[in-house]
Computed example of a mutant assay.
Amino acid sequence: MRLPCKEAVRTSILSKKWRYHWCRITELNLDSRLWETKMDKLYPTVKFTKIIYQILSLHEGPITKFSLDIAALKSCPNIDNFIHFLSRNDIQQLVLELPWGKMYNLPFSLFTFSLLSHLTIHNCVIHSPSDFQGFDKLISLKLCDVTIPPELLGSLISQCPLLDNLELEISEDSLSDVIEINAPKLRSFDFTGNITFICLMNVPLLAEVSLSLYQGSSMEADNFFFAMFFESCTALERLFLHFNGSEIEPEDDDEVAMRLPFDVNCVKYLYLRFLILEESYDLSHVLCCIRSFPYLEYLEIQLPVKYVMMFLRL
């Protein structure tokens, strides 16, 4: 159980008794270490397909955790059969890190994993079948650089009644400017990308939020709907704002509000990352937040390296 998959398979040479012990391990973590050697002569995709088929054809019993990392491949091989195979097991945790480039269309069989509790997906296109009823046991969902219709994303989130942790890393042009989140059990939300409005419809337990906004995101107290955002977060205690080193260009007539229309009494911890001190516009937003958090207990500001060097010289 503690060995890398490649080493676990190698135990089959110890004796006849050990030959098939590895076939009953319940956790499979498959990555390039399985097929990469110093003297590679076959194209990686060919070796990958052969090795994975051998592992899955010999495996016996349930697989509770399956992790597949093939991000280094130039293209994504057909993994529909692998996912269909996993759908017949008691899979609880699934991680798929797929190659960049042409996006892979996930098969509908993924949505039949009735015992799934943790799901992480990188680099693919997601469409669900019309009769999808949700993941009843899912508590953690992480989507990175996926292409998914916004209404499907909202529906997927709302159909996971136990969802506790949500991470979204959305690249440009892969989603609209509005995300609706209805998750009554959600406690942690991490968003990275370009967005105008995040609608938190039902998040009474949400205690920690991290927003890493790319250049072009609307961070104004009015345009980003900060008031509506915080009004829905009645349990929010920790707020992370990551500026990504981007410089927001305000319009000439833009003015940042001095404070939100109401006090946000629940926020106690505020973390500001990569704040650009020259940008008075950014600083105004920071001050607007601080003024609106009267019970703030902890403030951490992370500056770019150039500011740290400047302070050291002083």
Rank of each mutant, 00 (worst) to 15 (best):
E7M: 05
I13S: 09
S15K: 10
K17G: 15
W18T: 08
Y20P: 02
H21R: 14
R24K: 14
L28I: 15
L34T: 08
K38G: 14
M39R: 11
L42C: 03
L42H: 01
Y43E: 15
K47E: 13
K50P: 01
I51D: 00
Q54N: 05
S57W: 00
T64R: 05
K65L: 12
S67T: 04
D69W: 08
D69L: 03
I70K: 03
K74N: 13
S75F: 13
L86Q: 05
Q93R: 08
Q93G: 09
L94E: 07
K102F: 08
M103N: 09
N105Y: 00
P107K: 01
L110S: 07
F111A: 08
F111S: 05
F113D: 11
I126D: 05
I126G: 04
H127K: 03
P129D: 15
P129N: 06
D131H: 07
Q133W: 04
F135M: 06
S140Y: 05
L141Q: 08
K142I: 06
D145C: 06
V146H: 15
S155I: 11
L156S: 05
L156T: 06
I157T: 02
S158T: 14
Q159K: 15
P161R: 01
L168M: 00
E169S: 02
I170F: 03
I170D: 01
L175Q: 07
S176D: 09
D177Y: 14
E180N: 11
N182E: 00
A183R: 07
K185S: 03
L186F: 01
F189Y: 13
F191E: 08
G193V: 12
G193P: 13
F197W: 12
V203D: 11
L206H: 12
E208T: 10
L211Y: 10
L213S: 13
Q215T: 07
M219N: 11
M219D: 13
F224R: 08
F225I: 08
A235W: 11
E237H: 15
R238Y: 11
L239R: 03
F240T: 02
L241A: 00
L241N: 00
F243H: 06
F243T: 01
P250A: 12
D252I: 12
A257L: 15
C266A: 10
L270T: 02
L272V: 14
F274D: 04
H285M: 08
H285V: 10
V286H: 13
C288A: 05
C288L: 01
C289T: 00
I290S: 09
R291W: 01
Y298G: 14
